[in-house]
Design a binder for these strands. Sequence first.
DNA 1: CTAAATGCAAAATTTTTGCAGTCCC
DNA 2: GGGACTGCAAAAATTTTGCATTTAG
Lengths: 154, 154
Amino acid sequence: MAKKLPQTNLEQKLRAFEQACRKVGLKLTHQRLEIFRELAVACDHPSAETLYKRLQKRMPTLSLDTVYRTLATFEKHHLITKVETVESQARFEADMDLHHHAICRQCGAITDFNWNSFDAVQLPKEISGWGRIDKKNITLHGICGKCANGGRAK
Amino acid sequence: MAKKLPQTNLEQKLRAFEQACRKVGLKLTHQRLEIFRELAVACDHPSAETLYKRLQKRMPTLSLDTVYRTLATFEKHHLITKVETVESQARFEADMDLHHHAICRQCGAITDFNWNSFDAVQLPKEISGWGRIDKKNITLHGICGKCANGGRAK
DNA sequence: CTAAATGCAAAATTTTTGCAGTCCC
DNA sequence: GGGACTGCAAAAATTTTGCATTTAG
């Protein structure tokens, strides 16, 4: 899930992205393509600022406000997701398949994981009358293995 | 869960809070007591700014930065929780019992709910080796009944 | 061509910090 | 009394906006 994307998956994802943009009338600018690609290959749920820094190397004239504007546009059209965290900076991901997150309270790393049997289970009746529920996400909080080992790889 | 606290519960909570403060050496100032009380009676998971506005009526000299500082202090000592949202402003709650949240993507309302059978279930092995997990929270996203009815009560 | 998107700069929003004075223990 | 806490103001951090220019379709 949080592993690196095989090249073929990436190309597939990019083509799907381009099609989705055309469908909703979003122009396929160089900036948009590169911002999406950078987020699609990232597996660390980067912030706008982090993406900006990574892209600056290849695109020196890119501006931070374009990154913000572009991410907001993508999110509005459900092409990417804003990850819920307790941090001051918003973080994003391009993986739109249903999955869940584990967050390290020390280093802030976010790891994806799947839990199909949970996804399939019915909500308790206490909340089932709340309204229309679109998504059902789990967030785990704790200390990742790396941090537990004093920063050394596990 | 998200209902109003009965008066007795509130008094109990305040006494527990005072004891916890003494134990960790936090001074019991008027500001801290009032900020905690206001958060404890709130059931809408208010932001620092929202709490500040509510408290200003009774405490005209209270400053917003004290609210921020105080909430951060409380959170550090696990007396309150910062709720994970996608919003720009951080939101807080004083209910430290394990529970889950449903968030309305339209009005931003956060509703608490319990799910004991989920709390008891084991994590899938895909993530069980990730590290030390302290908390396991669900967040539901959707449109609450009120918003689905065009803002009128359900 | 033309509406939409970008880059720049400036502003708005949210949160944090330094410091002098105040207050709890 | 002394160190912790608060209020004030100013700054830092994060995000948004107005406008002239550029670009995709």
